[in-house]
Design a protein around this nucleic acid. Structure first.
Length: 326
DNA sequence: AAGAAGCGCAACCGCATTAAA
DNA sequence: GTTTAATGCGGTTGCGCTTCT
């Protein structure tokens, strides 16, 4: 049956844009492929706004789209969804991705659940383009122990330093209200509802509404207070007062009371503009800053044997925070 | 200025799982 | 219990843009 007739019979008159898209698609065969047009996006958004998502195959037909249901779903989830966040992956997000990937491997959709607004596709692309690029630069396999060590003992600590430095400089810029140095808090989570995000005094790094949203989840969201060693960490930067109250609500926090001394990092945005990694993996590991083991601060690499079962749980944010704590 | 190479991202493909008939 | 369709997920590809030579 003709699409236009079918839609009219269903009580859904076609808009001019819909008709144009339908006509254009007819010239190209039964199903369109490739990049989506503005008209197709509008059709999909309008239809979902009216009828909701789901039942993608029938949705594609009824919306007047000559696309497969899978294609419509993908377009909506990865691009058109209103809460999708695009653009730079923040340092906090990078840290969380590295942490979660060490636990779950290429479980992109699961990892994405802990980064609200980020899609599994975006995280997957980030991993393939950025992380694997670093592995290539270091001339080692992304799954090798050498690279995992670099990530754990160099990359992640440097991200932590950048986050802390960004918070420090942001706090210094705010001269209206005296602000105590931020502290870093990690908390084990048992559900995506407790997803990590940064909350602090700095501005511009994330949408304000988003920060408030995550803050709500931190203090009162589902899963708060539940602990599990296999669950990812929550990284939050907050004032000592907030951290204190948060600590009272849960016993599963790890604190770093003093910001990192790595004050040379000027960027206050939390977004990593340049590489934190350069040189060979052995050079990087050799330049690792002082770390703290059970016997106190030591220069160079930590005692890997003290870090638990590296095969089952390569490393975690808790480890990083603990080793940053000097 | 032009071509090559590299990079980032959107989209597709194939398989596995789940739900419905 | 079986079959079929729909959905979800991870891997891969292709295109456009930028940078390099």
């Amino acid at each position: 049956m003709d699409l236009e007739m079918e839609m009219e019979m269903m009580g859904m008159p076609m808009s001019p844009a819909m008709s144009a898209a339908a006509v254009a698609s007819e010239d190209e065969g039964d199903l369109r492929r490739g990049p989506w047009t503005v008209e197709e996006d509008a059709l999909l958004v309008d239809y979902i706004a009216t009828h909701g998502e789901g039942r993608w195959n029938s949705l594609a037909r009824c919306a007047g789209l000559r696309r497969t249901g899978k294609s419509c779903r993908l377009r909506w989830l990865n691009y058109l969804r209103p809460d999708v966040r695009r653009g730079n992956i923040t340092a906090e997000e990078q840290l969380l991705i590295l942490d979660l990937h060490s636990r779950w491997g290429n479980r992109w959709s699961k990892i994405a659940q802990y980064l609200p607004g980020r899609t599994d596709n975006e995280i997957k692309n980030y991993w393939r383009t950025r992380v694997q690029k670093h592995a290539k630069q270091l001339r080692c396999d992304v799954n090798s122990k050498q690279f995992r060590d670099v990530v754990r003992h160099v990359w992640m600590p440097r991200l932590v330093e950048r986050i802390q430095a960004a918070d420090s400089s942001a706090a210094a810029e705010s001269d209206d209200v005296p602000v105590a140095p931020p502290v870093m808090v990690t908390r084990s989570m048992s559900s995506p509802a407790g997803a990590m995000y940064h909350h602090g005094q700095r501005s511009g790094a994330a949408p304000a509404a988003g920060a408030q949203f995550y803050h709500r989840r931190l203090h009162g969201g589902a899963g708060a207070g539940e602990t599990s060693c296999s669950e990812p960490s929550q990284v939050v930067t907050m004032s000592p007062d907030d951290a204190s109250s948060a600590l009272q609500s849960s016993s599963s926090h790890l604190f770093i009371a003093s910001p990192s001394s790595a004050g040379t990092v000027a960027a206050a945005s939390g977004v990593i503009d340049g590489d934190v990694l350069s040189g060979s993996w052995s050079e990087l590991l050799a330049t690792t800053t002082t770390v703290t083991g059970r016997d106190g601060p030591t220069a160079g690499l930590p005692d890997f044997d003290e870090l638990g079962d590296l095969e089952d749980n390569l490393w975690s944010l808790e480890d990083i925070w603990l080793h940053q704590q000097c």
